[in-house]
Design a binder for these strands. Structure first.
Length: 561
RNA sequence: GCUCUUGUAGUUAAAUGGAUAUAACAGCUCCGUCCUAAGGAGUAGUUGCAGGUUCGAUUCCUGCCGAGAGCACCA
């Protein structure tokens, strides 16, 4: 598809040069369609230095812009906006491109050749996979897809904390409660691990000694009983996570574990004692104060690596596995301050890796009662949310459209996962989400199912059209709301990618769906008129763009619903 | 106490420094012989407070007030 935005920018640039003016050209879509398809504020920005009124300068600029087939009209509006209206010829071409590029419409080549590793989700074995991990996963997966759509090679990584104090706490609990029987379901086993963890966390509040000792034994693999509990529990957790990833439609290329990063990280720290790190109270620390940060412990006084040291090791392991150009790490914002310290230490140890590393944080999923705490057992397991959602979706599905119970079940899963992901991705990723399991996930209005429904509905019309022998055809386009919305999709993807913010895509899709549903209610798409092939083409373009957009959000479109 | 983040309709959220601050939910009024009503149309309602920068501020700066997170051996 032709890049109309660049084209108009070029026109303005040429006009400015002719007037011997210079300035950064900002071209945006006005908030209201009545204000045109593109708008520039350039005259307002440059009027002062020209010592003329913005309105007059705008008129001068416009007079220097040549006529073009793709532009229907250019108008100047007080105080000095220049508004561009695109022509029907442009809309016809853009619709044709959408149908032709089909499932690839929106892909670009800007990042071709780049290798990018993205780490997200990061659940810890022995602890619940809770709705906070769903947030990290939904955002991480969507950012991965955005970058892939930009043409880069993306490798997905998941870093799982299989050693550390939390594991020691869970093992403590298991020693007291015993292991669930082998015949228990995976879910029961995992939930027993969660309970064991809570018990251990309570003990830790009262008394550290026993759990500290267990922690050490886990690292050293020195105790047979502990080792056995550890190996089993770890395997169950990982198997369970795998089921969830499948449900979420995430496939990781690499799994990293704290049990591997800890050793390497510890070595790195020890090698640099006196240079970068120093001993203090039996621990090895990094003095962040020298860099306007705060001090963090990298190796504790038992000689074990902490999160910080592990993270240094991880950076090296990652690069050894995959020589990335950029490494993106996505975590919750509660670790922001640690990460700054860590990146500073990494800059001193491996400057070239630090330069390639980028930390992005998202807000936290909070319960109406406050922060979730797996330590106190106050978490909503992902599983519970899935169950509540699937029930709600099932209640809403009429039986008549579905061929079989299996089909219905499959679609219920697609819709409920769609609802969950969209509720997270529709808002700006940096902010906290206050999560009310009953209320927050809606199947109506601004929601995943609303978009899925719109695409499904359009597809259903297309099927009927095909049966009636009406094929999409674009001889002449109109300039309705849909036409004026559809061609913007590639721009939206670019903005979303540059800001690493899938919410731009979500927002756009809602606008498009709303415009289509409005259209659908006013216009009969399939009729006897010679307009029908065009209307069918329009519906096909809408279905395609919504499907592609949802794909970027990691959401599938069901066959029917 | 220090550092970071944050404050928009009753609620949950949108808005690269632009035009009349945008949606959804919850209200209220409507739309069913018609391609999927998980839909559509209409209605009412919002930028914490005080300054500053700017032709123009929800957006940038300062102060105040409120909320959250982090601040040495958890991740």
């Amino acid at each position: 598809m032709i890049n109309i935005k660049e084209k108009i920018e070029e026109f303005i640039k040429v006009a400015l040069t002719e007037l011997s003016l210079k300035g950064e050209i900002v071209l945006e879509h006005p908030g209201l369609l009545e204000h045109g398809d593109f708008s520039s504020n350039i005259a307002m920005a440059l009027a002062k230095e020209r010592k003329t009124s913005p309105f007059k300068l705008a008129e001068e600029i416009v007079s220097k812009i040549k006529k073009d087939d793709y532009i229907k009209k250019i108008e100047v509006v007080p105080p000095g906006f220049i508004n561009f209206y695109l022509s029907n010829k442009f809309f016809a071409e853009s619709l044709n491109s959408i149908l032709k590029e089909a499932k690839d419409f929106g892909r670009s080549k800007e990042l071709v050749g780049q290798k990018i590793m993205i780490e997200y989700t990061d659940p810890n074995p022995f602890k619940e996979f809770h709705i906070g991990h769903l947030m990290s996963n939904s955002i991480g997966e969507s950012i991965s897809r955005l970058i892939e759509w930009g043409g880069a090679e993306v490798k997905r990584a998941c870093y799982q904390g299989d050693v550390g104090m939390h594991v020691a706490k869970a093992i403590f609990g298991l020693l007291k409660l015993g292991l669930p029987s082998e015949s228990a379901t995976l879910r029961e086993k995992v939930s027993a691990l969660g309970k064991a963890y809570v018990l251990g966390a309570e003990e830790f509040e009262r008394n550290h000694a026993e759990i500290d000792a267990i922690n050490k034994k886990i690292y050293e693999k020195s105790d047979r009983e502990i080792n056995e509990l550890y190996v089993k529990g770890r395997a169950w957790s990982l198997e369970y996570f795998e089921e969830i990833y499948k449900k979420l439609d995430t496939k990781f290329n690499f799994y990293f574990f704290e049990s591997e990063s800890g050793g390497i990280g510890g070595e790195i720290v020890r090698k640099n004692i006196g240079k970068i790190f120093e001993e203090s109270d039996g621990a090895i620390i990094f003095r962040g104060e020298n860099y306007g940060l705060h001090t963090r412990v990298f190796i504790n006084s038992f000689g074990l690596p902490t999160y910080e040291a592990k993270e240094l090791g991880l950076a090296k392991i990652k690069y050894d596995k995959y020589s990335y150009d950029t490494s993106i790490v996505i975590t919750g914002n509660e670790v922001n301050d640690y990460f700054k310290v860590l990146l500073q230490a990494l800059t001193l140890v491996f400057p070239e890796l630090a330069k390639k590393t980028r930390h992005i944080s998202h807000g936290m999923l909070r319960l109406p009662t406050g922060k979730m705490s797996s330590r106190k057992g106050e978490v909503v397991p992902a599983e519970d949310l899935f169950a509540v959602l699937e029930e709600a979706v099932n209640k809403k599905m009429g039986p008549e459209r579905f061929a079989s119970a299996e089909e219905k079940k499959e679609i219920a899963e697609i819709v409920s996962i769609g609802a969950m992901k969209f509720s997270i991705l529709k808002q700006s990723p940096g902010r906290d989400i206050i999560f009310d399991i009953q209320k927050a996930i809606s199947l109506e209005g601004d929601s995943g199912p609303y978009l899925q429904y719109t695409a499904t509905r359009a597809n259903s019309v297309l099927e009927k059209a095909r049966a009636a022998g009406i094929l999409p055809k674009i001889n002449e386009a109109k300039s309705g709301e849909l036409e004026r919305c559809l061609y913007r999709f590639p721009e939206i993807i670019k903005t979303a990618r540059e800001n690493l913010s899938p919410q731009y895509v979500a927002d756009y899709l809602l606008d498009l769906a709303q415009a289509f549903n409005n259209y659908y209610n006013q216009v009969m798409i399939i009729d006897d008129s010679n307009e029908s092939p065009y209307k069918v083409a329009l519906a096909a373009a809408v279905a395609q763009v919504i499907t592609n957009g949802l794909n970027i959000l990691g959401i599938k479109v069901p066959k029917k619903m």
